[in-house]
Nucleic acid binder design. Structure first.
Lengths: 174, 174
DNA sequence: AGTCCTGGTTGCTAATTAAAACCACATATC
DNA sequence: GATATGTGGTTTTAATTAGCAACCAGGACT
């Protein structure tokens, strides 16, 4: 199932999720799942990937708790694949990806689908990262920082380097 | 450079960006670039990946306009790799990924770094998708829809199926 | 009974990945 | 001036992976 980036030193908060998703196909499967697809054949036809690959990806996603494999709801003896809560948590990521795509991957005059608010029928707003007090934050306005270490936890995880260092910029940004 | 998911039927607004990014390593490189890393050796040491892989990924990212390769600013005759505007556009995606990771990939008591607003020193807000009028939107509240087709463009791209069909749910969600 | 559809698994081969060795250039050191 | 050392890669090579195709099994339809 792919060597992937495991053996990463830190397996930080970005690498870990990547490892769970698996690969691009998985992300497209998840997107299709958000779109209401549930059956093996639906995914396969829609994505056009080999069946063994699809089977492997679905297995992996199920193993990581992103998709749940449930008995088909229509009486057929097959499985349906539905997003778990964890899987549904990927919604912002997919939206971010899509918005980035809309921004940079289409000619100005090239027609492309866009995400609209179902109720109002209008395009959605752009995703924005905001501070607690509502300012929009860009890359320079944020830092990755270790949380304040409560004394009780200070000795619980001696192995990971996350404790004290790196409260500023630099490697091991997690 | 990986067969990837090219040969996808539609290369929709999600698949296209994925294709450009390349793979997980690339995303980690981008994350490190956001973190201020610029030199080949910095990336290599920080990520622990083979040099040829790093070189290939950097080439790919440069080719896709995500990273720019500029002469080093410190007088050395080497290159520095800095994010382009397009690359910086990936910030929300990385934040989404990180927040998802924070939600589902750490034990409740497991310490992990988190993203804080540099100025206030407080954790950032959660990314939320909102409608034009400010409602928070979940997966069910959105649809992927073709934009209204202006007559001039109606015949410009006969090949792509994006024209009329699929204004609702279903495949080819782009 | 035969055929088709769904939902996979199993082999196989070609293509990719990644580790390691190598190389060129520059700077620092003796 | 010769030698080590760090940077920024490329080439070589072995192992892994992807994806095609074939196969298989249960059910439905004819």
């Amino acid at each position: 199932m792919a060597k992937r980036i495991s053996h990463m030193h830190s397996m930080c908060g970005v690498a870990r999720p990547l490892d769970a998703i698996g690969d691009w196909w998985s992300l497209l499967i998840i997107r299709d799942a958000f779109d209401g697809l549930r059956r093996f054949g639906e995914f396969q036809r829609n994505l056009g990937l080999a069946k063994n690959i699809l089977a492997a990806r679905l297995r992996n996603l199920v193993a990581h708790g992103i998709i749940d494999s449930v008995p088909a709801s229509d009486g057929t003896p097959y499985q349906e694949y539905v997003l778990t809560e964890k899987g549904r948590g990927l919604f912002p990521l997919l939206v971010a990806l899509r918005q980035w795509g809309e921004d940079f991957f289409f000619e100005p005059d090239e027609a492309h689908v866009l995400l609209v608010d179902r109720k109002a029928g209008l395009p959605v707003r752009r995703l924005e990262l905001r501070s607690q007090d509502g300012r929009v934050l860009g890359p320079e306005d944020t830092v990755v920082r270790s949380p304040p270490v409560s004394p009780a936890k200070a000795r619980s995880k001696p192995g990971r380097s996350g404790g004290a260092r790196n409260s500023g910029r630099g490697p091991e940004s997690g």
